[in-house]
Nucleic acid binder design. Sequence first.
DNA 1: TACTTGCTTGGAGTGCACTCCAAGGTTTTA
DNA 2: TAAAACCTTGGAGTGCACTCCAAGCAAGTA
Lengths: 131, 131
Amino acid sequence: MSLTQTRYTISEVEARTGLTQHTLRWYERIGLMPHVDRSHSGQRRFSDKDLHWLAFVGKLRATGMSVADMVRYAELVREGEHTVDQRRELLEQTRREVRARIAELNDALAVLDFKIDMYAMGTTAGKATQQ
Amino acid sequence: MSLTQTRYTISEVEARTGLTQHTLRWYERIGLMPHVDRSHSGQRRFSDKDLHWLAFVGKLRATGMSVADMVRYAELVREGEHTVDQRRELLEQTRREVRARIAELNDALAVLDFKIDMYAMGTTAGKATQQ
DNA sequence: TACTTGCTTGGAGTGCACTCCAAGGTTTTA
DNA sequence: TAAAACCTTGGAGTGCACTCCAAGCAAGTA
């Protein structure tokens, strides 16, 4: 365990996460970030812990979870250990939705495959599939 | 080939497709529908062909394709047979995006699984994963 | 020191995909 | 025929997730 903690400016975090400075400030404002440390002059200094949290939030974003739900999750984390069941439930609900979304995408993919094959097999075979 | 063509009012189409009347009218306005037939008094009368098109559009929407791109596709269809290559290309681009999206979702799913297991395995094992 | 680049805030603006409204004409049912 | 249900239009409004702005203070470089 080191005593030196790396601290990142908002630009560095922007470069590392791909999130804009605007979005990072907005995340903090809406309660999606635990309060970020500040320099003596008030500028944000992000820690590795913040970066980890942001990475996790990125995964939640990738699931399609709404910002409102991510904020809800962040609140539960702040409230402490006794919210573990609610957090798990929120994540399980999200997982169900992700699975459903993947199924939907696979379904749409099959239609796409069919249509592309149709087009690839020379000029649209049969007037029935003219679209 | 029957001479009787079934024609549906906008309410019937709403019930069948799950799209609201507002959305159906909006689709027509923005050029996402080939012009729908009208009754003598100007009310919409959708055909089975329209319903098929709407079903296909529903699949495109399920892929996450933007409305703008769906309109572009609809325009290409209206322009005729010589746009087949462009249509195929648009669909192939969409397919690449869908595959990437599925990969991203699977990736996020793995994180979700890991996290849920963590919570399920009794009170959060190890302070490192406190979120 | 002068200059450039970076950071701060609250609030306004953007783009997407709908979603709804008002006012009025049409069609169906009792 | 009368009432209820249904349909029309252009345009305004909504919710989400950012995205940007202005004014001003802070930090790093020649």
